[in-house]
Design a protein around this nucleic acid. Structure first.
Lengths: 95, 95
DNA sequence: TTTATTTTTGACAAATTTTGACAAGCCAAA
DNA sequence: TTTGGCTTGTCAAAATTTGTCAAAAATAAA
């Protein structure tokens, strides 16, 4: 399963767009988009939404990948119990 | 399913300990423990481990609750796709 | 009730983390 | 080589987190 940045890069390249063009749309530095695509930085939610729009992608799909990345970041600190913890969260989600 | 803080409070009260005593062990202010038990603040991983030891609880169980809280915090920003995102994380976990 | 003890609350400064820009670097194509 | 696109490292500013303090509130003891 792809990460947010990977998906963004894929979309961007398919559409033959430059980092510069995406950056311009978000009004940020090109370097930042580069980092986001390579997973070195996480996009803010706003940025994720803007990117989705600009790349004419399914917004929900991209936000899902974006959130998955965030969850994975949280898990890094204690991967050994990640599975069990996810189960708990799932249970809590349903309420 | 309980949250980390709830479980801590339960353990502490069962053992008839005061916030002050737990706080002393972690060398932090009583107010902080109060906040942690009520879920107003998240404990650091170190604190979680120290609390588990002091309350003679199963360390893994407490860490699991602790991580679940962290994941839930991450999810708050975009709950609508949480379930799908969790699925992705689960898949990635298995690799 | 008073009094004493414990817990909670809100505000705050300090510490830490995150953020994005900038500038210099790399690499491939011309 | 030069050019254009992307990457990298570093930095200050901004934002968030952290824990303390003092005071209020709740609880328990007298």
């Amino acid at each position: 399963m792809k990460h947010f940045g990977q998906k963004v890069r894929e979309l961007r390249e398919t559409q033959k767009l430059l980092l510069r063009q995406v950056a311009a749309h978000l009004e940020v530095d090109t370097a930042l988009i580069s980092k986001i695509e390579r997973g070195e930085r996480n996009a803010s939610k706003t940025q994720a939404v803007e990117i989705a729009k600009f790349l004419k992608s399914n917004e929900e799909e991209l936000l899902t990948l974006w959130l998955a990345d965030k969850i994975e970041s949280a898990i890094v600190e204690e991967p050994s119990v990640a599975y069990q913890a996810m189960k708990i969260v799932n249970k809590n989600l349903k309420k």
